Amino acid sequence: MAEESVKLYGVWVSPFSRRVEIALKLKGVDYEYSEEDLANKSPLLLKYNPVYKKVPTFLHNGKPLAESLVILEYIDETWTNSPLLPNNPYQTAQARFWARFIDDKCIPSLWKALWAREDQEKAVEEAKEYLQFLENEVKDKKFFGGETVGLVDIAGDFIAFWVPTIQEAVGVKILSEEEFPKLCQWSHEFANHSLVKEKLPPKDELLAFFKSRHF
């Protein structure tokens, strides 16, 4: 097989570009990483992602892809070792559903609740309602798909690692062991997975980053 060219345009603090890095690490795929400044986007980022103009932007043998969940599925289909999705069609559909639920419902509500200037109590309540669905879904499994890290776990990297860090930075408690014991156990398993943790940002740097933005 000819040598493959894999490149990722990302931002170190972005859970979305970190998703792609985690998937590539789990698959053992070598890649070139380019850190972007979203206040001064590079010509190459704009060239390869002209629609959304954001990270992550993924390049495989010169062919670009955007949107992290799309990229994750492409990686899973291209490099078939260490699968991120199950073989069973129904289980695959369920995994896609929960990954999309995280993106469409959980992350926006959590972000709003963590940074709300007004009606924070209401925002926190809504975020907790969404987290309860994930608490019920993970049950007593190590990861959402069972014993190995899969698509839903990677999609949930913001919940597992970013949320606890931002909570510490801003002094708002949403994800707690008292209310979400199973989800907290999952987040610990995910963030401490030997390969995953290599691709998570340093906690002290992430904490400092968010503290600097909390006024």
Rank of each mutant, 00 (worst) to 15 (best):
P201G: 02
V152G: 06
F210R: 11
D153W: 09
F180Q: 04
E121K: 12
R18C: 07
W79V: 13
V29P: 10
K25E: 11
Q132A: 06
A39F: 14
Y31C: 00
S17H: 09
K53A: 05
T57N: 13
H188C: 01
N88E: 15
G171C: 12
E135L: 02
Y74S: 06
A123F: 04
Q120F: 01
V163W: 00
G146E: 04
V70L: 11
P56R: 10
L134V: 00
R213M: 12
P43S: 03
G145I: 10
H188R: 14
L59Q: 13
G62R: 05
L44I: 13
A95C: 12
W186G: 01
M1Q: 14
E137A: 15
L24S: 00
M1L: 15
K142R: 13
N192M: 10
A160C: 03
I154N: 04
E137R: 14
V149H: 05
K63P: 10
L85N: 13
W12L: 01
S68N: 03
Y33N: 12
F144Q: 04
K122L: 07
N136Q: 08
L183I: 01
V163H: 04
L195D: 08
L38T: 11
L175S: 00
D37G: 02
F97E: 12
A160H: 00
S212H: 03
Q167R: 01
M1W: 14
K122S: 15
A2C: 09
Y33E: 09
P83N: 08
E35V: 01
Q167H: 02
N61T: 10
F209S: 10
F190I: 11
A169L: 01
K54E: 13
V170K: 02
Q91W: 03
L195F: 04
V11Q: 14
W186T: 05
A2D: 13
L69H: 08
A160G: 03
L85E: 11
P15S: 10
E121H: 10
C106V: 15
G150W: 07
L45C: 11
E205C: 09
L26I: 02
E126P: 03
Y33V: 06
F97I: 11
F209L: 03
S34G: 13
E168L: 06
L59P: 02
C184Y: 04
F16Q: 07
G171E: 09
Y33Q: 07
R18G: 02
V124S: 08
D103T: 09
V20Y: 00
K112P: 03
K112G: 12
F158L: 11
P201V: 02
L151Y: 15
A116I: 04
W115I: 08
K122A: 15
H60S: 07
F58G: 12
L69K: 10
E126M: 04
H188D: 14
F133T: 15
P86Q: 06
F190Y: 14
T148V: 12
P201W: 01
E205A: 14
I107C: 06
E198R: 02
P50F: 08
I22C: 01
F190R: 14
F158E: 01
L85D: 11
S194K: 13
V163Q: 02
A169Y: 08
P15V: 05
F209C: 07
E67W: 04
P89G: 03
N192Y: 08
V13D: 03
H188L: 03
E126V: 09
T92W: 06
Q185F: 03
L8N: 04
F143D: 05
L72N: 07
K47V: 02
V13Q: 13
Y48V: 10
L65A: 08
D153L: 12
K139S: 07
